[in-house]
Amino acid sequence: MEAQERADDFIAAGLASLGVEADATELAVIRAAHGVFWPPILELLELDLGGVRAEPAPDLSRPPAAEA
């Protein structure tokens, strides 16, 4: 319940601060999407990638350039 309340607060505050309106049906969709995405997003933020950094402007048609 507490997590749901936090989610509802986040969604309401986020949309309101951006000035985005949502009706009841849209809010239900947003809550459902948040329930699916938010836990793995939190896990992703904590994921240890061993210091890997994003490739600057990667050429996705090729393997990554060899590290220097």
Partner: peptide, 13 residues
Amino acid sequence: PLGRGLLKYRILL
């Protein structure tokens, strides 16, 4: 409604 909700959620990521 699904599309509308998902578009609006996208901006909160």
